[in-house]
């Protein structure tokens, strides 16, 4: 469904991605793990048209999106929960969601999967706090709004850039619960995570990224037991993140 081919990207003189290739199949849940500065966010931004790309292709459902502007990519079923959420802080929850909802409707004219009602079922807090300004919500609540905002674009592939960072374990659990539910309904998921323990819970397969390259791919039991394999974990993630 999503294929990234030989992607090279950087900022000015700095080269960050050195020919990254990977794919996410239809309804598949895939993780990208890697240490700080490995280039995970640069990769996400490249896929979404939000950051630089010097070479390579981003292909979704056989359509080449590489040269499409960011705001045109949602049409192809991609939605992203960005690092730091990137909500509109001085606007209310409802206003934040309304904009995404309008575009989602435009992308999928018939039978919307994520209606306002469905979103409120997934995140009851949204119905309660819909008139609250985003900046007054806690980090966990904001993360839920960010996921809701992405879902309202009616995607079939949800990309999440470190959604668990800085959140209390209880909130992370709630978010994982929602993601697991989405996955079981066939939503494709590309999860960027430093916390392998979290990533393993909802993904079937993972790419390990280091210094702008995919250095390892793990699937099945190798991925499920990734943390136990000290050699892998330490080599690719460094002691700190492997220890979580």
């Amino acid at each position: 469904m999503l294929a990234i081919k030989e992607l090279t990207a950087g900022y000015g003189q700095l080269r960050v991605l050195h020919g990254v290739s990977m794919h996410v199949g239809k309804g598949e849940a895939v993780a990208i793990v890697g240490a700080n500065g490995a280039g995970k966010t640069t990769l996400v931004n490249a896929v979404c048209g939000l950051g630089p790309v010097t070479q390579g292709r981003v292909i979704k459902d056989d359509v080449d999106l590489t040269s499409d502007a960011a705001h045109r990519r949602g049409r192809h079923g991609i939605a992203v929960v960005l690092e730091n959420r990137r909500l509109f802080g001085e606007m209310t929850v409802q206003e934040n969601l309304r904009l995404a909802e309008e575009h989602g409707r435009a992308y999928r004219s018939a039978n919307l999967q994520f209606t306002w009602q469905r979103i409120c079922e997934l995140f009851p807090l949204i119905a309660e706090r819909r008139r609250t300004r985003i900046e007054l919500l806690s980090g966990g609540q904001q993360q839920m709004v960010a996921i809701a905002r992405a879902l309202l674009l009616q995607p079939d592939l949800l990309i999440l850039d470190e959604p668990s960072t800085g959140l209390a374990p209880k909130i992370v659990k709630e978010i994982l619960h929602v993601l697991r539910g989405l996955r079981s309904e066939g939503m494709g998921i590309l999860l960027i995570e430093q916390n392998v323990g979290v990533a393993v819970e909802i993904t079937d397969r993972a790419y390990v990224m280091a210094l702008g390259r995919i250095v390892h791919e793990a699937a099945g039991t190798e991925w499920q037991t990734f943390l136990n394999d000290e050699r892998l974990a330490a080599a690719y993630l460094g002691k700190a993140s492997a220890g979580i």
Partner: peptide
Amino acid sequence: IDPVGAASIGIDV
């Protein structure tokens, strides 16, 4: 408020 966030939800910034 946030051009990147806006573009990510389909707004033509």
